[in-house]
Design a protein around this nucleic acid. Structure first.
Lengths: 186, 186
DNA sequence: ATCATATGAGACATAAATGTCTCATGACTA
DNA sequence: TAGTCATGAGACATTTATGTCTCATATGAT
């Protein structure tokens, strides 16, 4: 064998896991294997148990998020524009990644470290955009980030419920975010 | 025995379940019983299994939410003011109720029915406030409700992380909501 | 054609949560 | 004092997910 990582079977399991676990986060490995069209034993040959599988899904999701963010912000003309493009690029990933928010991944040091790193990089980006005037200086950066994340989720839900297209939801959510934090006067 | 529903033991179990399940949604009934200071058998005497317990927690949470909303909006001078007061009153309930969002409760007809009912009542209230000018008429009511819910969650998280007090988080979240949806022009 | 490898199916063992039951104890009441 | 009742502790069976193993098969390479 060359490299088992490249085998389509492994990918099929990962894709099935994303799909099944988003529909039912407590689905058994048997259900995941079935959805992938493989036997349960095969799943155990590729992943060292449920924890290992979820760990791989987490890494995969982080790669996908980072890649989407990189692609989106590649040719942005300002920090503010980069944040806007990342915002819109991440919304469609909710279908694949959302269930991970409910998974206990505190016991994965490397994943935690990577999460912290990406988070702190994003905060730096946000603070540069803040200086550009993307949102009012009196607004705590923490609140911007929290609102940013939750409005991404809200936009994704709007699409999932059929109330809007990706583009429509992204537009209204972005407008809500920027207008809501523009000038913290009430 | 008079009425077992009123026994402190049952309440102790419910309170412990709220606490333990928020810390770890996959906690066992044994852990919940221990946290309540009762034996596992006693828990089974009061609740017909995990599903029944979660069902009771759901009903309890819905009662608490409805009560908090009623109290808060009791003497509001307008629909808009009522929505604002409900917003602030619900934020602190996140500590108790949030884990229920991850529980599968689709198999409870009565709970689903009650949820739908409260939801549609809230939508009616929102639409009356919309006519008062609480938010711009071009903004879909669905988007207002989604944003409302998610900013409540964001505010609760802001408090949980220690970045703000209840009152501070409520103020900034409400300002974000109203300012963000005031005039859908960008 | 032969061989190596990955797989599917299924048997089997294990672990953990769950549900039921019994019994002794302590509190409260008649 | 005697009786009733809820409880705690623990034994026991059941269920479900999980992990491991074996063996037959199919596929692809030599």
């Amino acid at each position: 064998m060359t490299n088992p990582t490249r085998l389509p079977v492994r990918d099929a399991i990962i894709e099935a896991a994303f799909k099944v676990l988003n529909a039912d986060p407590s689905a058994s490995l048997g259900e995941i294997a079935s959805a992938a069209g493989v036997g349960r034993a095969t799943l155990h040959r590729h992943f060292n148990g449920r924890a290992d599988l979820v760990c791989e899904l987490t890494r995969q999701a982080m790669r996908e998020t980072a890649h989407a963010a990189d692609m989106a912000s590649r040719n942005a003309l300002s920090y503010s524009a980069a944040i806007r493009k990342i915002f819109k690029a991440i919304i469609p990933l909710g279908d694949r990644h959302w269930f991970l928010a409910h998974e206990p991944l505190q016991a994965l040091p490397d994943v935690c470290a990577q999460t912290k790193k990406q988070e702190s990089e994003f905060i730096k980006l946000v603070e540069k955009a803040k200086k550009e005037g993307l949102f009012h200086s009196s607004c705590p950066t923490e609140w911007f980030v929290l609102t940013y994340d939750h409005l991404i989720h809200a936009a994704w839900e709007m699409v999932r419920k059929g109330h809007a297209t990706d583009a429509q939801a992204a537009d209204i959510a972005w407008t809500t975010l920027i207008q809501g934090l523009k000038k913290a006067k009430h």
